[in-house]
Amino acid sequence: MTASNNKRPSHIVWQVVGEGDKARWNRIGAGWPNRDGKGISLKFDALPLDGRVVLREHEQNEEAAQPSSE
């Protein structure tokens, strides 16, 4: 399982604590597609102890804004 040579991640890994408008989104890692296209390699900068983990496609302006609640 190896990630492609693309340096920019295709996905961002988030920890989400809470629900709805009161949810807190904390960026905890990133993901890159595997060369065979059948998976995503994840790199975690932190491991959450609570909440849930959400993997979302990386968007150009995602650095400045949090994703909407799911």
Rank of each mutant, 00 (worst) to 15 (best):
A46C: 00
I28N: 04
R8E: 15
A65D: 08
V16P: 04
D50G: 10
I28E: 03
D45I: 03
G20V: 06
N61K: 11
W25V: 01
E70H: 11
V13H: 02
V16T: 12
F44M: 10
G29I: 07
D45V: 05
G29S: 10
V13Q: 04
L49D: 06
A65K: 10
I40K: 13
M1K: 01
P67K: 08
I12Q: 13
G31T: 07
W25F: 13
E59G: 14
L49S: 08
N5H: 08
N6M: 14
L47E: 04
L49F: 02
E63S: 14
W25C: 01
N61C: 08
K38H: 03
N5W: 03
P48K: 03
E19W: 06
T2I: 00
A30Q: 11
S68R: 12
N5K: 12
P33R: 05
E63G: 13
R52P: 00
S68P: 07
R52A: 10
E62W: 08
N61T: 06
A30C: 05
L42G: 05
Q15W: 02
W25N: 03
R27A: 01
S10F: 12
E63I: 07
S10P: 03
S68F: 07
K22W: 01
G39P: 06
V16M: 13
F44N: 00
G29D: 09
K22G: 01
L42V: 14
R24H: 08
K38G: 01
P33W: 02
V13K: 04
R8D: 14
L47F: 05
G18K: 10
R35A: 11
L47C: 01
S69Y: 14
A30D: 09
V17C: 06
G31M: 09
W14R: 10
I12C: 12
L42I: 15
G51M: 06
E59N: 12
F44E: 01
A23P: 04
E63C: 11
S69V: 13
D50W: 04
S4T: 15
K7A: 11
N26R: 12
W25Y: 12
R52F: 05
G18N: 10
R35W: 00
A65E: 10
R27K: 06
K7P: 12
Q60W: 11
D36L: 02
S69I: 11
L47Y: 04
G39F: 06
H58D: 15
S41N: 13
G29V: 08
P33H: 03
Q66G: 11
D21M: 00
K43N: 11
G29C: 09
A65F: 11
L42D: 04
G31V: 04
K22V: 03
V13P: 04
A23F: 06
N5D: 09
W32Y: 08
S41I: 07
F44Y: 11
N26L: 08
Q60P: 02
H58P: 06
